[in-house]
Amino acid sequence: MWAVLRTVPDPEIPVLSLLDLGVIREVSVQGRHVVVGITPTYSGCPATAVIKSDVAAALQLAGYVAQVHDVLSPPWSSAWITLEGCEKLRAYGIAPPEFPVGRVAALLEEAVAPACPRCASRQTELLSEFGSTPCKALHRCCACQEPFDRFKCL
């Protein structure tokens, strides 16, 4: 069962499995019947519907009768991305969320600069609070000059 879920990639960031992303919140197995609870990363993330159908399809292919539903609470946090997932993100060129994410910067407060996933320099700057998917922001490394995506801390 877990082996099957480990093979289902995130549709937007395919280096991450759904287990790495921390969106699988509940799994109960009774014989061949599986119930999976999935939490969305962002309320409006269009990938959520794709994730649910991918999970159902992968489980069906493995011979299970799958039922997938939403889990709203507790809300997803970027702290749920596994350490292995963070390493995969870095290798893929996306700065992973920093830990701990518990403390949220005040509205006008400068956030901590993320480390460049290529050269690890902390001399980085924010280009855009919003990026190509709801979960990412766009930064630039002032040391190696490369722009990079960063997983937002949520």
């Binding site: 309320s43 409006g44 855009s128 990026g131």
Partner: peptide, 21 residues
Amino acid sequence: AIEEDLGCANISLDLLGQARL
């Protein structure tokens, strides 16, 4: 600027998700 396009679009998407819930 394209960053502001992205900003408005992303905020809009979050709001739409909240509306759906």
